[in-house]
């Protein structure tokens, strides 16, 4: 069983304006802007990006390109998934981020096992999920760190509607 060192809790860095909205423009949900950028025409997108410093423009373009490469249907689902995520309370967002990073750090074979279990567990009713995760078979199959990943993600990252 591979040992998984849980990464230290590090809140997702927020820019100063988001930490202290007083005295700054009310930025609201920046995810809305990210979604709109994805859906904009190239000309509209460039008009928005041109207001940012050049290095920031490059960072955003790089990120947009990765998502631009998705088929339209997958892109829509990515946006919908992000909307679900951004509606979570901040502490749950941090927890999901942290456990996804922990999942990504698993060896390939363990990631496969945990990923499959996650997709099943997240669709179970709460009582059934708890019963499954309490079973000796489950505990013998997954390390304590993997069990924690599965418990946190299946409880806080809901399945798509």
């Amino acid at each position: 069983m591979p040992a998984l060192a849980e990464p230290p809790r590090q809140p997702h860095p927020q820019p100063p304006a988001a930490r202290n909205p007083k005295g700054a423009p009310k930025l609201g949900n920046p995810g809305n802007v990210a979604q709109r950028l994805l859906q904009m025409s190239p000309e509209e997108r460039e008009r928005i990006l041109s207001r940012f410093p050049p290095e920031r423009q490059a960072q955003i373009r790089q990120r947009l390109q990765r998502l631009d490469g998705l088929p339209k249907q997958q892109q829509d689902r990515a946006i919908e998934r992000y909307q679900t995520f951004s509606n979570l309370p901040a502490e749950k967002q941090d927890l999901v981020r942290r456990q996804i990073r922990a999942f990504n750090a698993l060896p390939d074979d363990r990631r496969q096992m945990v990923g499959n279990a996650f997709q099943r567990l997240r669709r179970m009713p709460e009582a059934e999920r708890q019963a499954r995760m309490s079973s000796p078979a489950f505990k013998s199959r997954f390390s304590p760190e993997e069990q924690q990943i599965l418990a946190d993600l299946s409880a806080n990252w809901p399945p798509p509607r």
Binding site: A34, R63, Y82
Partner: peptide, 13 residues
């Protein structure tokens, strides 16, 4: 919107 916030949102996505 601030560019850093847009970057974080795109990273999360």
């Amino acid at each position: 919107a601030q560019p850093e916030q847009i970057e974080h949102a795109l990273d999360d996505m």
